[in-house]
Design a binder for these strands. Structure first.
Length: 447
DNA sequence: TCTGGGGTCCTAGGACCC
DNA sequence: TCTGGGGTCCTAGGACCC
C-alpha cells in the first residue's frame, strides 16, 4: 500500500510542531497559498520509448513495434542482428535464437499498432512473439531516451516552472498561477504545452488537468494518445467513481485483489465504505488514505526537487547460476555490479554509508541484506568488500536468477563527515552472523 | 511464454539509550 | 530491583510505480 504522498505521518496523532507566530513570518512566505483554485496537470508521453524509435525509423510508422530488453544481452543481440541498427527489421518471431536471447527479456513499450494485439509493457518477449509474431523488435537506446526526456521537460519548464518529475516520461505541472493556466480549466495551457513539445521533439503526449495530483493522474488516461482531459471536483461521481480501484495511483495488484475479495470493484464502491471499515482491513494509515482518495481528496504538494535515496544495479542472468558451480561467473558479475554502483555514485557526486545486496532465487523468492558502515564511500573496492560481507549472511544453496548491489544512506560527496573510520556500524540491529549454509561454501570468500 | 531494471516509501521488530 | 515508557538507528521484506 502506498499512501505515500497523502499520509506521511501514518498515524492519527497530529504533528504538533509549534507554528511561528504570524508576525514572524516573512511577508512573501512561500507558504502563502494562491488565491486561485489549484489546477494541477499530469502529463505523460505517448508510448515514449517506441515513439522515439519511430522518429528515427519513420518507415516503421503504423507497424507493430516492440521495444525490448533492458537486459544487456538482449540489446547486444538485437544490435548484432540489426547491424547498423536499421539494415533489416526483424520480427520478434524470427528473432535469431529467440529463446536464448530474449527468453528472459520483457517489453518496455509497444507502439499503438502492437497494442492492438494485446502486447504491452512489462510483458515477456516470448509472449509477445506469440501474440504478435510480426512485431518488429528494437533495442532500447537509453541515451536517446534520456535526451528526449530532458528536452520535453525543459520545454514544459519554460512555460510552467513548477514541475514535479515522475520518471522518464511523466511529470506533474502546477497550472495554478501560470498565466492562462485557469482558462477552460487548464485546457488552453495544456494545448499550448502539447504544441510546444511537439514542435521541439516531434512527440505527442496526453495531459489531464484537475484540482490535485490524484485526479490529474487519472484524467491524463482518459484520452490517449495526444489527448487532453479536464476534471473538476464536481466530476467525481460521473468520471471517477465508475473507474476500477486499480486506476488509483497507489492501489496495485495486492490491494486491488483484496478489495475485490471485499466485493469492491469501482472507486465509487470504495467511497461507499466506512473509513473505519477500511482502516480495520488495511491498517490505520492505508485505510484512511484509501477513503480520502476514493472521495477525490489529495492536498499533497508538488515535490519540485528531490535528492536520491539510493542507487543500485542488478542483473538477471541468462541462465540460473549456482553459487559454487558458477562461482567464477558470479564473482565477475558481482564485481562488475559493484563497479557500476561506484561509478554511478561518483558520476552523480554522492557517497553512501549503507551497502546492500539483492538475490533472486530460481523460485523467484527475493533476499536482501544491508550493512551500514561508519564512513561514507563511493569506492568500488570498498563497496565490493561490504557487499561481500552481506553475501556471507544470506543462504546460497539454491540457484540464483538475479544479483543486485545497492548503495543507500546517500549524502553529497564533500558533505560527508571527515573523520570517519570504516568499520561496521556498532548500531547493527541484527548482528551480522554468517548463516550455516555459507559455512559449506568456503569458496565464497573469493567471490 | 514464467515474469527486466531502477527507484520510493512503509512496516515491523530488535538493539540501544535515556 | 523491577517495570515501562519514548526515541532513534538499523535491518528485512514487501507493495507499488515508471
Amino acid at each position: 500500500m502506498a499512501p505515500r504522498e497523502l499520509n506521511k505521518s501514518g498515524g492519527t496523532i497530529p504533528d504538533v510542531t509549534p507554528e511561528p507566530a504570524l508576525s514572524t513570518l516573512p511577508a512573501a512566505s512561500a507558504a502563502v497559498a494562491s488565491a486561485l483554485p489549484r489546477r494541477i496537470a499530469h502529463l505523460d508521453m505517448d508510448a515514449f520509448f517506441a515513439s522515439v524509435e519511430l522518429l528515427r525509423y519513420p518507415q516503421l510508422k503504423g507497424l507493430p513495434v516492440v521495444i525490448g530488453g533492458g537486459r544487456r544481452t538482449v540489446d547486444e543481440a538485437l544490435l548484432a542482428a540489426h547491424g547498423e541498427r536499421a539494415l533489416r527489421f526483424i520480427p520478434v518471431a524470427e528473432f535469431p535464437l529467440l529463446k536464448d536471447y530474449v527468453g528472459r527479456g520483457v517489453i518496455t513499450t509497444a507502439t499503438y499498432a502492437a497494442r492492438q494485439f494485446g502486447v504491452g509493457s512489462a510483458m515477456g518477449m516470448m509472449k509477445a512473439a506469440r501474440l504478435c509474431p510480426q512485431a518488429i523488435v528494437l533495442p532500447v537506446d537509453f541515451d536517446e531516451i534520456r535526451r528526449f526526456s530532458r528536452l520535453f521537460k525543459s520545454t514544459i519548464a519554460e512555460v510552467a516552472p513548477r514541475v514535479q518529475d515522475r520518471g522518464i516520461d511523466e511529470v506533474y505541472i502546477d497550472f495554478t498561477d501560470v498565466p492562462g493556466g485557469q482558462r477552460e480549466g487548464g485546457r488552453s495551457l495544456a494545448r499550448l504545452i502539447q504544441r510546444a513539445i511537439f514542435e521541439k521533439t516531434g512527440l505527442t503526449c496526453s495531459i489531464g488537468v484537475a484540482p490535485n495530483k490524484l485526479l490529474a493522474k487519472m484524467a491524463s488516461e482518459f484520452s490517449k494518445p495526444n489527448g487532453i482531459s479536464i476534471v473538476y471536483e464536481a466530476d467525481l461521481q460521473t468520471l471517477i467513481w465508475p473507474l476500477n480501484v486499480r486506476k488509483i495511483n497507489g492501489i496495485g495488484p495486492k490491494a486491488g485483489e483484496k478489495l475485490a475479495r471485499l466485493g469492491v470493484q469501482t472507486i465509487g464502491e470504495l467511497a461507499a465504505l466506512e473509513r473505519q471499515f477500511l482502516m480495520a482491513n488495511f491498517g490505520k494509515a492505508s485505510g484512511a488514505w484509501m477513503h480520502e482518495v476514493a472521495w477525490g481528496r489529495d492536498d499533497s504538494p508538488l515535490a519540485l526537487e528531490s535528492e536520491p535515496v539510493s542507487m543500485s544495479r542488478e542483473t538477471t542472468f541468462e541462465r540460473d547460476l549456482h553459487a559454487v558451480r558458477d562461482k567464477a561467473e558470479l564473482g565477475a558479475i558481482f564485481t562488475r555490479l559493484c563497479e557500476q554502483v561506484a561509478a554511478d555514485l561518483q558520476r552523480k557526486g554522492y557517497v553512501a554509508r549503507t551497502i546492500g545486496i539483492k538475490l533472486r532465487y530460481d523460485d523467484f523468492r527475493v533476499a536482501t541484506r544491508d550493512q551500514t558502515v561508519q564512513a561514507h564511500t563511493a569506492d568500488a573496492q570498498a563497496i565490493r568488500k561490504i557487499a561481500g560481507q552481506c553475501l556471507k549472511r544470506v543462504p546460497l544453496d539454491q540457484r540464483l536468477r538475479l544479483l543486485g548491489v545497492r548503495a543507500s544512506a546517500l549524502v553529497r560527496a564533500g558533505e560527508a563527515p571527515v573523520h570517519e573510520q570504516n568499520k561496521p556500524s556498532a548500531q547493527a540491529g541484527h548482528a551480522p552472523a554468517a548463516t550455516e549454509s555459507i559455512a559449506s561454501y568456503p569458496l565464497f570468500e573469493s567471490w
